[in-house]
Computed example of a mutant assay.
Amino acid sequence: MTLSFGVFLLISSVFCCCAHAGCGVVTRQQWDGLDPTQVEYLPRPLGLVVVQHTATPACDTDAACVELVQNIQTNHMDVLKFWDIGPNFLIGGNGKVYEGPGWLHVGAHTYGYNRKSIGISFIGNFNAKTPTKAALDAAEALLKCGVREGHLSRSYAVVGHRQLIATESPGRKLYQIIRRWPNYLEDIDKIKNNK
């Protein structure tokens, strides 16, 4: 009886972990992330994905990517006073996606758009170099899974961070790539915040 209950707990914890992050994402527990200081839920399905870069060094190993994600979270929470790490997801050169606020919670990636979009940040600076094929493939798989799981609408739009605020993000090379993605939105007049 104890064994059955133990197996039940194990299966339950795996299910809860997958239901929260899903899509093959490295959960915040797996990268040893800090708990957010506050949580606000996103409406779903969302129709906007903002692609950016971290403007940090890149990473191509699991250990290096975890260390960078932890450092970014520490900076965002301790220095910038965010509730959590800013982007909903971060993608390393190793082809792994790291959970930030995830599919369910508001991130802090693009001022004025956090409550109506998912922010995906590629780890590195992509002004002069392109992300790895593994990272680009991981982004594509994440977006497809987001639609399949009901987090993103089937008609979601992808924009570059620079289209919404004054920044170089997602970097010149990455921006050239996302402009060729099928869901890329060139004309942002309908989604642009009017201030």
Rank of each mutant, 00 (worst) to 15 (best):
K96I: 05
V97K: 08
V97Q: 07
Y98W: 13
Y98L: 13
Y98N: 12
Y98M: 13
E99A: 07
G100H: 12
G100S: 09
P101M: 08
P101I: 09
L104D: 13
H105L: 10
H105S: 04
V106Q: 12
G107R: 03
A108R: 09
A108G: 03
H109N: 15
H109L: 05
H109R: 02
T110F: 01
Y111H: 08
Y111V: 08
Y111D: 11
Y111S: 10
G112H: 13
N114F: 03
R115G: 04
R115Y: 02
K116A: 02
K116C: 04
K116E: 08
S117E: 03
S117K: 08
S117R: 08
S117L: 06
I118T: 01
I118H: 06
G119L: 04
I120W: 06
I120G: 07
F122T: 11
G124K: 15
G124N: 15
N125L: 13
F126R: 08
F126S: 05
N127H: 12
A128K: 14
A128E: 15
K129S: 15
K133P: 11
L136T: 11
L136A: 01
D137F: 08
D137S: 13
A139G: 14
A139P: 01
E140D: 14
A141R: 14
L142C: 10
L143V: 04
L143Y: 13
L143M: 14
C145E: 01
G146C: 07
V147D: 00
R148D: 02
R148M: 00
R148T: 06
E149M: 12
G150H: 05
G150I: 06
L152V: 02
S153Y: 04
S153M: 04
S153E: 08
R154Y: 02
S155H: 03
A157Y: 14
A157W: 10
V158A: 02
V158E: 02
V159S: 06
V159F: 06
V159E: 05
G160F: 00
H161A: 06
Q163R: 05
Q163W: 02
I165Q: 10
A166Q: 13
S169E: 11
S169C: 04
P170V: 09
P170A: 10
P170H: 09
G171W: 14
R172L: 09
K173M: 15
K173S: 12
L174A: 05
L174K: 06
L174G: 06
L174M: 08
Y175E: 13
Y175Q: 07
Y175S: 12
Q176S: 11
I177A: 00
R179T: 06
R179S: 07
R180D: 01
P182G: 00
P182S: 05
Y184C: 08
Y184W: 10
Y184S: 10
E186T: 11
D187S: 09
I188Q: 05
